[in-house]
């Protein structure tokens, strides 16, 4: 009996059969099917209105890119069991910071961007420290910082530039990197795709990704397993603010101006993208591919609708219905996934 505890080579290799099963039961599958469905319906209603042209696709992809860059770290936080709604204020705050520094005070853009990232990291740090130290739910903490940062942005804008907005013309190289269009697609779209690839690796392949799932699944057990749960959460909040700042700066560079009004739709859009993408609101489950598809779906419904014969006013209704369906489906997928052990016998 005593040798039983020792490690020896496993007698059985176990990775062959999962591919298909895992795919079908994956929550990303639901998000993918949902997106294809929405795409097909919209394509049918939009065929004569250029929905399927490059311009039509670029239109909603451009819209989705901003949401997508923010939705990824918001999704990470959701998987870790937290929420960040301060992104709605972080985006204009970072846009204004860059606009004021490099536009009004004419600092070199690289310096302006570095300072803006620093400010964003600071806000993320405050969010993270408040959440981990006080144990107040992150919804409340980031609701507070949403308004605090929003108010501060407006006040400081008026102090520095006398107006709630500022114009800024970035140098050509910055425009080319962050603001130009290529085949109709904004640079942010390519950044979004790149970040999706990088963060896919982080979430699903790196040990750090495993910690995110563990913390969201059972924080106490994760801590007992030696995972630095507080440090992990703080880094996630910092990541979220920094990514939001990046998206905000891309917008300034493209549109040559920054606004200081809080971006409330961004809050809802990022959460919707994650939930439609199969992230479990209570944490512990979600996929990056799902978040990506969720964001695309949102882009099609909110923006692509202008290229179809569907009434634009219906987009909110469609999103509401989709959100409900997604939450219900997520539950089903989870049940399927966890009951795999019993279901497999009959396969």
């Amino acid at each position: 009996m005593s040798e039983a505890i020792q490690t020896t080579k496993s007698s059985k290799s176990t990775s062959s059969r999962l591919a298909v099963g895992e795919l079908i039961r994956s929550p990303a599958m639901g998000a993918f099917v949902g997106m294809i469905l929405v795409f097909c319906i919209f394509a049918a209603f939009g065929y004569h209105r250029n929905f399927l042209t490059l311009g039509g696709i670029a239109n909603w992809m451009n819209f989705a890119s901003t949401i997508g860059i923010v939705a990824i770290p918001v999704g990470f936080l959701m998987i870790a069991g937290e929420l960040d709604i301060s992104v709605g204020a972080m985006m204009p705050a970072s846009a204004m910071t860059l606009g004021v520094l490099s536009g009004h005070f004419e600092l070199p853009i690289a310096l302006g961007m570095i300072i803006t990232f620093g400010v964003a990291a600071l806000v993320g740090l405050v969010n993270g420290l408040l959440v981990t130290r006080t144990k107040v739910p992150s919804f409340i903490v980031t609701l507070a910082t949403l308004f605090a940062v929003g108010g501060l942005t407006l006040t400081l804008s008026v102090i520095f530039v006398d107006r709630p907005q500022v114009a800024y013309y970035a140098p050509d190289w910055a425009k080319a990197l962050f603001g130009d269009r290529y085949f109709g697609f904004r640079a942010a779209v390519f950044w979004w795709l790149l970040l999706t690839g990088v963060f896919f690796f982080v979430l699903h392949k790196s040990p750090w990704g495993n910690w995110i799932f563990a913390v969201g699944g059972d924080q106490e057990s994760a801590r007992n397993a030696g995972i630095p749960t507080n440090r992990l959460k703080i880094s996630l909040f910092v990541l979220c603010s920094v990514c939001t700042a990046f998206a905000g700066m891309c917008q300034v560079i493209q549109f040559n101006s920054a606004q200081s009004a809080t971006n409330f739709p961004l809050i809802f859009n990022t959460i919707i993208a994650c939930v439609v993408g199969g992230v479990v609101l209570t944490g512990g489950f979600g996929t990056l591919v799902g978040i990506f598809f969720g964001t695309m779906t949102l882009g099609i419904v909110q923006q692509g609708i202008g290229y179809t014969e569907i009434d634009r006013n219906l987009s909110s209704l469609i999103i509401g219905v989709m959100l409900l369906l997604a939450v219900l489906m997520n539950g089903t997928f989870q049940k399927l996934a966890t009951s795999w052990s019993t279901g497999k016998k009959e396969d």
Binding site: K205, S206, N210, F213, G217, A225, F285, T338
Partner: peptide
Amino acid sequence: GTFPLMSISRSFFAGVEPTKGWGPFKVF
């Protein structure tokens, strides 16, 4: 000690993940 929505092996190795690869490209 366990995480319901994680796979058995990921749960088993939570916090002490075995990796392969090098540098920043260490994968689970």
